[in-house]
Amino acid sequence: MKDDTGKEAAKVQLILTAALQTFAQYGYRKTSMEDLARASGMSRPALYQYFRNKEDLACSLVRGYFTDAAQKVAEALAQTGTPEAVLEAAFRAKLDGMEALLSSAHGEELLELGHSVSADEVVEGVARIEQLFTQWLQAQLAAGTVHFDAEAEEVAQVIMAALDGIKRPPFDRIDRNLVLLAKLFGRGLSR
Rank of each mutant, 00 (worst) to 15 (best):
M1F: 09
K2E: 12
K2R: 12
G6L: 12
K7S: 10
E8W: 04
A10I: 05
V12H: 08
Q13V: 01
L14P: 01
I15F: 03
T17V: 08
Q21T: 11
Q21S: 15
F23S: 05
F23W: 03
A24T: 06
A24E: 06
Q25L: 10
Y26V: 00
R29D: 14
R29N: 10
E34I: 12
D35N: 14
A37N: 05
M42L: 10
R44P: 04
Y48P: 01
Y50Q: 03
F51N: 02
F51L: 02
K54N: 04
E55D: 15
E55F: 02
E55N: 12
L57N: 03
L57R: 02
L61E: 01
L61D: 00
V62H: 02
V62C: 09
Y65W: 05
T67D: 11
A69Y: 02
A69M: 04
Q71K: 07
V73A: 02
V73H: 02
E75R: 05
L77S: 01
Q79S: 02
T80F: 02
G81N: 06
E84D: 08
L87D: 00
A90N: 13
F91P: 12
K94P: 00
L95V: 14
L95D: 11
D96T: 14
G97R: 13
E99P: 01
A100N: 03
L101T: 08
A105P: 14
E108T: 14
E112P: 00
E112C: 02
G114D: 01
G114I: 02
S116G: 10
S118T: 07
S118E: 01
R128V: 10
Q131W: 03
T134W: 06
T134C: 11
T134L: 07
Q135S: 14
W136L: 11
W136F: 14
Q140E: 15
G144C: 04
T145A: 11
T145S: 10
T145K: 09
V146E: 09
A150I: 00
E153G: 15
V158F: 14
I159F: 12
M160F: 08
M160S: 08
A161F: 08
A161K: 13
D164P: 00
G165N: 12
I166P: 08
I166W: 07
K167Q: 15
K167C: 15
P170K: 05
R173G: 08
V179I: 13
L180Y: 07
L181I: 03
A182Y: 04
G186Q: 08
G186I: 07
